[in-house]
Design a protein around this nucleic acid. Structure first.
Lengths: 351, 351
DNA sequence: GCGCGTTCAGAAAGCGCTTTCTGAGGTACC
DNA sequence: GGTACCTCAGAAAGCGCTTTCTGAACGCGC
């Protein structure tokens, strides 16, 4: 390349395919074909194009490519909170799988604001994301479901792919579904086996499908054994560590103390454990505590937490896999994921 | 809209601005101006355009917009691992700030592969991300630095903004820099004050700038007090929970046991704590343990971890803020962030 | 030697927007 | 009433690619 050409290039914002083609002395079409391997091109032209592209350090404009080919290399992922360990663990599988497919991930964090979730889906639609993943529990709210469907349906009709992890009565989309009911029920039975009869539950906002399922599965299984959870032993709080702390504190305040407490997520259980420690209530000696999810950190708590283990990383992988695979024939695909009860030192037989 | 028009629309993949303009009986230009508020438009035309856009549920094609206006609404964020609690905490601030600016975040996870990091920067460049954020320690490796600069320099010359969190001898970019040396030094002095004289250090790959700084700051401060860390008490391992576990195990295996151990990150400290527990070494009675970062979970460990607290969320906010603000006059801006020593129950006076 | 089928490079038509340029129509002022 | 100026809608030129269409060049069979 001559000095003059070099200078001219410095003016322009970017090196374009046009520049490469000119430098290589071929047409735009040929340059495009070489760089994409779309068609056979005579060897010497090939070489020239490749050489020019390298020399000019050409970077294709992904927007132009997306526009011209009407397809993009990005997928959207919507979550509640990136700093939630549950999401973090799932995201790992999501990111890995995306990378394997050469996809870029656009991440949106709703901070549990339903309106914002819908807004983000609209943005991802505008970005022509190839697929949209909804990670985390949906809301059991008619209006919200309608609004979400209003975004998702046109998106899917125009070739967009949607997959969700956890949720969603009304959305006709591919889904990876942890067996929340069954897992919670199995946990209940395991705790019954330990000898517990008096339970407390620290639960999240009941509008979340996940909460409803876990709470329902747990209490139903207990009921099956003739055990009822006293209403004042069910405490609702935000779906966070601090929510768990507050709920556990409230539970202790209410007087009569259960022998075993189930927090519907590990994150809440962590807060509960801290609350018990701060109040001098020994776990598991005075009270047993169990969670749900098996986020990585709970193994390192003292005591390590009894929980229902979900293969979080693999779930992320599968949900991204669903979204990237060929669309289903007609109906949505459902992949159920079983949880496995893991008894650790945070639970013991009641005294 | 007539049935025929409705039907015609169903064929097309998307509703375009053209469709809206036609439906409203105005020109493309006018429709664009109304939707973007770019210029004054007569009230009745305005209304018609807005109504049509609503009725057709028009979603602009972000790629077309980006191409035509040569600007985009997305920023790229490159991290090592989304599931690392350190990144998760920082990401929270990053995501919040991005949302406040109406930006979409494209997230890339390198899994600590230097080559992949550079590859991602190229992808983000292709996507014409308005800014690129590099979160996490850089590599002290000439070749890598050169290759990274080769991507970043042209990007910045063409108007791209780059900001980093932690690192980077050679990159001329805006940066948020935790005071790793100073923080580690302050921690060292605090531990000396507790009475410790015999230290161990669990460290990460020394090619990471963060590791070098923290290790250096710690040992230098000790040296200033006439205390040397015995070489066999410095154990290098991967920058992970399991790395910390392995390093602590190795440290115990080596025989003579220090009275106090510093793990260069909280994540490693968590692993170390587990290793000590598994080996029956009481913390802090038999050995004191300190970390660095103050990731949220360490407060809930037993014992809660002494550490150097970094305002992780705020750091994320600031690095995104740097990237979104007007570019600096000429030189890169540096924002230093001080760490604060927080003594918790994992450290105590030696016996 | 001629027609036919192939192969492959180049011309050109978009993809869906933004934005400059053009010109119509209205207003203010002399 | 005519000129100068202003406001604002529409025409059209791109943005940087992909991809269809066109046609040149060549090899082959009869």
């Amino acid at each position: 390349m001559t000095e003059a050409a070099e200078e001219e290039r410095a003016d322009r914002a970017y090196v374009t395919l046009q520049d490469v083609a000119r430098d290589a002395g071929v047409s735009l079409a040929t340059a495009s074909r070489v760089l994409n391997g779309t068609a056979q091109v005579r060897a010497d032209l090939r070489e020239r194009v490749l050489a020019s592209a390298g020399r000019l350090s050409y970077t294709p404009n992904a927007h132009a490519q997306a526009l011209a080919s009407s397809s993009s290399k990005s997928v959207g992922v919507v979550c509640h909170d990136v700093s939630d360990p549950y999401f973090a663990a799932v995201a790992r599988g999501v990111m890995r799988t995306a990378a394997e497919h050469g996809m870029l991930v656009m991440l949106a964090s709703t901070f549990r604001d339903p309106a914002r979730e819908i807004e983000y889906v609209a943005m991802l639609r505008a970005q022509r994301a190839r697929a949209i993943l909804l990670i985390g529990s949906g809301f059991e709210d008619r209006d919200w479901e309608r609004a979400m469907a209003a975004e998702l349906d046109p998106y899917q009709r125009t070739g967009g792919r949607v997959a969700v992890l956890s949720r969603h009565r009304s959305l006709k989309v591919d889904a990876v579904l942890p067996q929340n009911r069954e897992g919670a029920a199995a946990l209940a039975r395991a705790l019954l086996d330990l000898g517990h009869r008096d339970f407390g539950v620290l639960t999240g906002p009941h509008a979340l499908t996940t909460v409803a399922d876990r709470l329902g599965g747990f209490t139903d299984a207990l009921a099956g054994a003739g055990v009822r959870v006293r209403p004042e032993h069910i405490v609702e709080a935000p779906f966070t560590r601090d929510g768990g702390y507050a709920a556990a504190t409230e539970l202790l305040r209410r007087g009569t103390r259960p022998t075993c407490v189930f927090a519907v997520t590990d994150v809440m259980a962590i807060g509960a454990l801290a609350a018990f420690r701060d109040r001098g209530v020994a776990v598991p000696e005075e009270i047993s505590l169990a969670g749900f999810d098996d986020i990585p950190i709970v193994r390192d708590l003292t005591p390590p937490l009894t929980t229902v283990a979900l293969p979080l990383d693999a779930m992320g992988e599968r949900v991204m896999g669903l979204a990237l695979r060929e669309p289903a024939a007609r109906r949505s695909r459902i992949e159920r994921v079983a949880g496995e009860v893991v008894l650790r030192a945070s639970t013991a037989a009641p005294r």
